[in-house]
Write a protein that binds this DNA or RNA. Structure first.
Lengths: 102, 102
DNA sequence: TTCGTATTGACTTAATTAAGTGAGATAAGA
DNA sequence: TCTTATCTCACTTAATTAAGTCAATACGAA
């Protein structure tokens, strides 16, 4: 699941405040550039973010419909009144349920 | 010309003492990894070195016939008695003569 | 239950590709 | 001559792909 990982959720939160280049996202974490690159790949595959190539940079931004789709999915699975990302943590962390929002 | 650049000649000298992974070559210079990667690409295109992929590593070694071909070329161009790499420096450094040994 | 044995997933290291910069050479025009 | 425009080439930065490690989970057999 794309949002199972806390690092990916933090990326989504960051992008909520505005678009960022891959390198700017990496700078905000302690892990390596490839690690972030791989997270971004998952988020993109799940339809949660989009990329715009600008010269040497890759600008990542939130896909407007992406979180809506995710929210709808969450409601369906758990009921919308418990749809807190924090409380879903254990549920989402279960492996093998990785078909994502899309 | 593949051997016009002193960095590339130093790489060839290093490989003369045995095969090396790309990273080991990089470690012996002060420039960035991509810079070395690009030099290795030129040397490979000129038939002077070969690569063997070994897991995550790329092992570079001298192509046995490569320098022979180069030497023959040098003799043809300058006469074998003046075929010192040092004295050819200015000649080799001329741009636009980049068809190489091959 | 317990003990291998897979599988998953986040991560690192190794290396590369792609894009852009800057210095030196070349050539054409005023 | 001077100067301006173009080209080449070594280089850097930005980002990624590929390969491998490691810990946690899941799972079937003894």
């Amino acid at each position: 699941m794309a949002l199972a990982d806390p690092t990916r959720r933090r990326i989504i939160e960051m992008l909520g405040e505005g678009a960022l280049a891959a390198g700017e996202i990496t700078a905000r974490f302690e892990v390596s550039a490839p690690a972030i690159s791989q997270h971004l790949k998952v988020l993109k595959a799940a339809g949660l973010v989009t990329v715009e190539i600008s010269g040497q940079r890759r600008i990542y931004r939130l896909e407007p419909g992406g979180l809506d789709t995710f929210e709808a999915w969450v409601r369906q699975v758990r009921g919308f009144w418990t749809a807190s990302l924090g409380r879903l943590e254990q549920e989402l962390a279960k492996p093998g349920t990785d078909e994502g929002v899309e």
